[in-house]
């Protein structure tokens, strides 16, 4: 049982299950056929179609903008929550911040939809999507930052106080540099969660704004064209690139994300 051939066989089958579908998508993105049925020949046609698809490019730009802005605010609020939860004995804040992380996404999506339309009388669009994304990302950042603080030796902060540092100096010179890897990891996580989100965006975007996941959803729901293969391949390459960059500059970030 320890590392028996049976264990290896099952594990390899699971790896195959994880990768074969994605490999098929990548292969078909270069396939010179309108159908995802059999290999005909190599082409870059679908990438050219993609680059001329204005709607898709706009959706991509929206996704980047939303991810950047909501990750910035979520990191700020999440870092504050993480510090507050670690430092002070608070009851309400952990519940408020962590619950959205543990609930099915659809619940946050529909409750925000009611809130925006019925109570605030908002027109759904960029702004409602931003608020929604910040709301569900704060918890993830807070968890990572708190975990970082929990693993730290309290005596460093005491030493800083004993040596005459003001609370602000202690924060600026000691606490902040120490939690920075956690903050970066949280920010990367918030960015990825936001750019990937489909469910919450689906309910809060209305007709006002289109993001990449919404665009992909409507494409595969209505008609499957190999253009989806091309956009999927590009996105996978992009995420892969981000992971490699992250593991270079912030090895902790990957561990935080895991």
């Amino acid at each position: 049982m320890r590392r028996s051939p049976l264990l290896w066989a099952v594990a390899l089958a699971v790896y195959a299950f994880l990768y074969i579908p994605l490999v098929v998508v990548v292969l078909y993105s270069f396939n010179d056929s309108r159908l995802n049925a059999e290999w005909v020949g190599f082409t870059l046609h679908w990438y050219r179609v993609l680059l001329n698809d204005g709607e898709m490019l706009e959706a991509g730009a929206n996704s980047l903008l939303i991810a950047f802005v909501s990750a910035t605010f979520a990191t700020l609020l999440g870092t504050m929550s993480g510090i507050a939860m670690h430092r002070f004995k608070l009851r309400a804040l952990p519940l408020l911040v962590i619950t959205p992380v543990a609930m099915p996404e659809i619940l946050l999506g529909v409750s925000l939809l009611i809130f925006f339309v019925q109570v605030l009388n908002f027109t759904l669009g960029l702004f409602s999507v931003l608020i929604a994304h910040i709301t569900f990302c704060v918890g993830f950042v807070a968890i990572v930052v708190r975990a970082r603080l929990a693993g730290m030796d309290e005596s460093i902060f005491e030493a800083s106080r004993d040596l005459g540092a003001s609370p602000w100096q202690t924060f600026r010179l000691i606490t902040f540099p120490l939690i920075l890897p956690g903050v970066i990891a949280g920010a990367l996580m918030a960015f990825t969660l936001s750019i990937d989100d489909f469910v919450i965006t689906f309910f809060t975007a209305g007709v006002g704004v289109h993001t990449l996941p919404l665009q992909i959803y409507s494409m595969i729901k209505i008609a499957v064209t190999p253009e989806v293969n091309a956009v999927s391949t590009l996105l996978m390459t992009l995420t892969l690139g981000m992971i490699i960059v992250a593991s270079r500059f912030a090895p902790d970030a990957l561990k935080g994300a895991a």
Binding site: Y15, L18, Y19, I20, P21, L22, V24, V25, Y28, L35, N36, A37, E38, T192, D196, F198, L212, P213, I216, Y217, I220, V224, V228, S232, L235, M236, T239, L240, I243, L254, A257, A258
Partner: peptide, 27 residues
């Protein structure tokens, strides 16, 4: 472990779409 997380880094709609191709009637 990274090999387990890596596919998870691509959007879940893309992973669903990959299955749509693989389970399709012509496959």
């Amino acid at each position: 472990v990274l090999l387990v997380i890596l596919p998870f880094a691509s959007n879940f709609l893309i992973r669903v779409y990959a299955l749509m191709i693989l389970l399709g009637p012509q496959q």
